[in-house]
Structures are given as structure tokens and as C-alpha cells.
Design a protein around this nucleic acid. Sequence first.
DNA 1: TTGAAAGCGCTAACAC
DNA 2: GTGTTAGCGCTTTCAA
Lengths: 331, 331
Amino acid sequence: MKRATIGDVAAHAGVSTATVSRVLNGGAVTATTAAKVWSAVAALEYSPNALTKSIFAGRSRTIGVVIRDLSSPFYLDLIRGIDEVATADDSLVMFANTFRDADREVAHVRTMDEHRVRGLIMTTGESADGRTRRMAESGVPCVIVARTVPDAPPGLHSISLNNIEAGRLMAAHLAACGRSAVGVVTSGRRPSQVERTLGLRLALAERGLPLPPEAVAVAESETGVGAAIDALFARAHERQAPVDAIVCATGRLTVAVHSALTARGLTVPDDIAFLTMDDFPWATALGITVVAQPSYEMGREAAKLVVEQPDESVALVFEPTLVPRTSCGER
Amino acid sequence: MKRATIGDVAAHAGVSTATVSRVLNGGAVTATTAAKVWSAVAALEYSPNALTKSIFAGRSRTIGVVIRDLSSPFYLDLIRGIDEVATADDSLVMFANTFRDADREVAHVRTMDEHRVRGLIMTTGESADGRTRRMAESGVPCVIVARTVPDAPPGLHSISLNNIEAGRLMAAHLAACGRSAVGVVTSGRRPSQVERTLGLRLALAERGLPLPPEAVAVAESETGVGAAIDALFARAHERQAPVDAIVCATGRLTVAVHSALTARGLTVPDDIAFLTMDDFPWATALGITVVAQPSYEMGREAAKLVVEQPDESVALVFEPTLVPRTSCGER
DNA sequence: TTGAAAGCGCTAACAC
DNA sequence: GTGTTAGCGCTTTCAA
């Protein structure tokens, strides 16, 4: 059964399409005509085509969201925050996952652009930056999450965490818990993680504690974590500097690192302290101390930048908080 | 800076809009004209308007997804599965969260319909069923997840778990682990949970084990879990039938129930066995035994129903699997 | 192979 | 108040 169009409604109600449009969008009409139109709408089960509407507006009422990896709890909360603001502004969220693949990233950003999203929020690498800049310049607000953008044009915003401070919080807490030999597991060269490690190293150094490059292990993905940890311990053994704390620089690897530790017979916190990024529902039950980001709030603010369209480029930096539990041997 | 339209490209290339359209969509054109058009496209940074395209197609290349509660791990995997199939079919996912609110549910389904999604996948209550039926009848495949639909018209499909079997698996496992007095925490009257409880009761009865109504506690949300458990234990105490196992009938409450147990000084599995629905990343580390759904696969199949548009109404039922760990005192 | 023109479903001027 | 008309950006006949 074919869908009714505004023309069908008009014919059924015995008025013009313009009048139907006015009734639907709140123009000046008589109560009687309005009634006729509404009953025609009901009779034909008319559902206005939002796509066509968007053509006139030039844009759709849709916020594009491109995420690298939905499985991280951080992104989950981020999306919920975005969805809340979008719904409040009568918008929908268009979502796509890139599975950390640069090609998909570019493709998805292009598709979002072609769908004339009213704004784009993404947690991607730099591969799509060219298009993003152009989108921003042509009036589509873009928000880069978890990364700052150099020389951002108006309309291109960023939302990130004070990662240096996150590292500092970790150092301070570990030191307060009496740990002196810290090892780090990071998933690579993403700026956020590099900065966290840097902040950690800085604040550790201020306390006379070292964080040599050998104490930093890189694991691209969950599967590489075991090997990375083994290598880390081996290097520590060679240097005769056993590690008494492991910091995980990304929430994505929390499970993997924690499992690797216990799989090696290590007890947290007695044998080794464990400290990671991003709070998650099970952290309390497990007693895992974390440095948390206000992920939900960050999602809300990202969506607000899209909805409110500030003239200038804005770079929002959120402050991390340490949530102490028991995994660092807290007293 | 205004966006270039197909007319601008045509003018720039010195051809008609029809020709540009043909070049873009692979019609019959000379190599030379194609080259001219492509260079015009590049020069003007032309990005075709997917919205306008959809008007002709009658539908957009977008799959709508309406979820009750993104925070459940089941839905996360479901979405990832949907996204994968959507991307492979050159589609985007339009997402909305209902926060378990019936009004939002109806509103979101309507908005999705107005956006002319090519199909709709949802995990909602019955409030939007009327519209869903109509959508299905007018050629928009709709897939209801986690619920079966009576008298479904062609185009209205359902994807669910064999919940009776899930309950049976739980009963068998608990019995094998030597537990005989089971208590259940469920979040309410959703059919899936009712069926799981029923399957559990049936299979328990076959083994001569009881599951009286008093042994089933209802907690609408996380916050109600503590009280529900207390009431459950109190009733068991009155009846002088202490409970030696707690079954959580929904993955959404796993954290809350587990926390409530440990908060009451109960050790799992020594004091009490714990068995819940839906696998999750931390389950291994925590040793929690679960009955898992193939959530990712279910998402893929749901999306396939949208993409492949079978003529008949199909009701896919997936089989649960028990993943034994240590929380039931397994040997 | 290419262009002119009609039309997708809707809104926005402009008359009446 | 209401209808007529033009047009949004694109595709698709139908001629040439």
C-alpha cells in the first residue's frame, strides 16, 4: 500500500497542499479547515516525509556520530549524553562504528556529510580531518572527541580530557599508596594516551620516582596485552627493578590488563597495584581504582556544540577525577 | 560558503545535470565527459545530497534502531552486529534510546518513520505496535527484538531467545552444582523474563525442586534490587527455606544483584550461588557463570531481515548457551 | 551519448 | 484564510 502524500491529504480534505502544510506546521487557519485536514491525515494515516522537509531547510535534524570502538564504556556514556541532548532538540542520532579502520572512518564521515547531518561528533584519527574542516567551514559544526585540533576553523570544536592531569592524579595516588616502581600499558600513539603517560612521568619525577621508557609497554589490542606485560616484566627483571604497580592508560584495555595480571598469578593489590582509566559499572565490585572522565557530560556538551552552533572554535577540556577503591592497596 | 549542487557541477563541466547524474551513478557516458564531470566535482568539492536521492527511491538508506536501554551489554553487541551489516549494505544506523519510557518509544518510532528508514529494529514495549504494523504493511521491514509478535503481518519480524530453554539451562546447571533452593530476581513483566522464570520453574520441578512465587523478587530498576533481595531472604526465612542460589533473570541487573549479595556479606559461591543472563567482558575475571545469548549474531540477523526483505513474517529464535565458571560452586 | 523537461514531496512567496 | 505558483536538489523518461 502506497504512502499518502501531502497532495493526497489535500485532495481528501478538499483544500490545497499549502493549507495542509500550514495546518501541520502551525500557520494561520480556520478551526474548521484544520479539523478537515486532521481528519484526512488520520484517515490516510499520513506521515510527513522528514527527508523532503530537510531539503528545504538545507539540513536534516540529525546528528552524526562516528565512533572508533563502541565497546569502550566511555563511548557508551558519551552516546547516551549525545542522544539525550539530540532528543531534547528534536533530533535523531546517526551512528556508525569504524572498528578503528581509517578507510571506514573516511567513508562514514563522507556518508554522514552526504546525509546532510546538522553536525558531526566523532572520535576518529586524522584521516578524515580534511573533510571535517570543509564541513565546519560550510556551516556544519563538527566536534572532535578525545583529541584537540590545531588551527581549528570556526565550527570545528574539540572535547577532551585534561590528560596530563589524569596522569598526575595517577602518580600522586600511587605514591600516596607507597608504590615506587610503576609500569604502564598503553594501546599506542593516540595523543590522549601519550599525554597521560607524560603526566604520569612528570608527576612521578617530581617525587623522585622514575618511569623509564622500558617501563612502558604497548599493546595494540586486547590480544597483545599478555605479551606486552610479559615483556615489561622481563625488562624490569633485567634491570633488577621489579614493578609494584601497573597503570593501564586506556579504558579499552582494562579487562585485558587486569586478566593478564591475575592470569600470571599476581594478586591485586598485594603483589601489584592496578590503576586504570575510565570508570565502569563493575569497578566497585572489583575494587578497581580508576581515573574517571565525565563521559556522559562530555557527550551532552558535544551535542550542545552542535545544537547551539557557537561562532568561534571552542575547545572544551574536562577535568578527570580519581575514584579510589582498593586496587592500589589504599588504606 | 554555499554547497555546490548538481547544477553547479553541470555548469562548471559544461554539460547537463542529467549527464552529471549519469556519471555519478554509472550510466552510459564518454570517457571525456566523465573526466570533465569528475574534475568539476573535485573543483567544487561536490557532495551529492543523499536526502534528495532518497526522495526518489522513496526510502533512505538508513536502518532505524530504537533501544530501551543502551547500558545493557546485550544491546551494545546487538548494535555492533546491526552496524556491521548496515555498513556492508551501504547503509547508516539511526539510533535512539527510549530510557524505558513509552512516550519516547512512540515518538522515536514515529520520527524514524518520518525519516523514511528502510527498516526498523527495536526492543520496545507494545506501545508502538500499531505504527509498527502499519509500517511493515507499507513495505518497511520491522524487527522486534526480545519479544515475539502475535499475528505478525508480512514484513513484521521478531528475533528472540529461547527463553524457556535459558531457564532450563539454569535449572540443570544449578541442580548439577548441588543447589536446591533457588531464588530469582527479575526486573518485571517483560515476556522474556517471565519465560525464563517459567523455564527455570519447569525444569526445577522435573527434578523435584520447588520455585514458589515467594522465591521470585521483582526489582524495577537497579535501585530497587537491594530491597527486593531483602524481601526475598525475609520470606525464605519465614518459610524456613533458606535460599542457596540466586538467579538474575536479566543482564541489566547483574551488577546490582551481585553487589547486593556481596554487600550483605554473602560470599559467592560458598554462601550462595549466583547465575545470571548475558555474557559480559568482566564475567571471566569475576568467575560469574552466565547463560549467554548470541547478541552480535542476533544483531546481524536482525539487520539482514531489513536488508533482505523476506516476503513472509519470520520469527527467529536463538538458542542460549550456558557458560560455566565458578559462581555456582562448579567443580 | 547527451539534453530538455517533468516530477519526487514538500515549503514559501505572492496573490486573492 | 486560502489557493496558485515556483522551486529545493536530484533522477528519469523521452527525444534528438
